[in-house]
């Protein structure tokens, strides 16, 4: 497949959150604001792209591949954990508010199935450039998914969208117009499950429709 396909598959066809349902823990926990979602997305992007690159470089040489294969899981873990720790430390120093909002989920990027999964499934068997593109696509697809969930949760739960720090979009006017108040439920854990469930259901409905159309087309 060409690079464009390689990149875009992370968004729709193989979206890590909505299609393969990986990395669900942060998706439910930190999506209370759009800012959190974007912050997590940046962290995951950094880790995923670099880990894919490093692992691909390590495995490119057949001799190295032979040596690493028996211990590849520990090697992957060490590399990913190092990258995550770097992100953790840099965030703590320079993006302290985001660090505190994301809390324990920053170190938990280590066990985010997406990163280990891509390392095992793609980066260890592909060229570095392909790996970078794959990583970028997956990370951005994940960020998009996080954004979608947090958009609905924050909008319905709060009436406003926090894009970054002070940059807020206040849509409370819409609520006032419709004479209803924001539904606090969506900011809570309940809302996370509901939003995620409904988005998956919508996607399933769309996919089913497509399949039916394809079947009808074939007939």
């Amino acid at each position: 497949m060409n690079q464009k396909e390689n990149f875009l598959k992370g968004f729709i066809k193989e979206n890590p959150l909505f299609v393969t349902v990986l990395g669900t823990c942060p998706a439910l926990a930190i999506t209370t604001t759009v800012e959190n979602a974007l912050g997590m997305g940046i962290a995951v992007f950094f880790v995923l792209v670099l880990s894919n690159l490093i692992i691909s470089l390590l495995m490119v040489n057949p001799k190295m591949q032979e040596w690493i294969k028996p211990v590849r899981i520990p090697v992957f873990i060490v590399v990913i954990a190092t990258l995550v720790t770097v992100v953790e430390m840099v965030m703590h120093a320079f993006l302290t508010n985001l660090y505190e909002s994301l809390g324990v989920f920053i170190p938990l990027i280590v066990v985010n199935c997406i990163i280990l999964g891509r390392a095992e499934a793609f980066a260890s068997g592909n060229k570095p450039l392909d790996s970078i593109v794959d990583g970028a696509g997956m990370a951005l697809g994940y960020t998009f998914a996080l954004f979608l969930i947090s958009f609905f949760r924050e909008f319905l739960g709060n009436g406003s969208i926090t894009i970054w720090g002070e940059l807020k979009v206040n849509l409370i006017g819409l609520f006032d117009f419709l004479q209803i108040t924001p539904i606090d439920l969506f900011a809570k854990p309940v809302g996370a499950f509901l939003t995620f469930g409904f988005i998956l259901a919508v996607i399933a409905a769309i996919t089913n429709k497509k399949q039916e159309k394809a079947k009808a087309g074939v007939k």
């Binding site: 390590l58 190295m64 032979e66 040596w67 690493i68 294969k69 028996p70 211990v71 520990p74 090697v75 060490v78 590399v79």
Partner: peptide, 14 residues
């Protein structure tokens, strides 16, 4: 020997 080398590689990476 293979196991040793693998271990060594892991150590170096670590």
């Amino acid at each position: 020997k293979k196991g040793l080398i693998s271990g060594l590689v892991l150590l170096v990476i670590g």
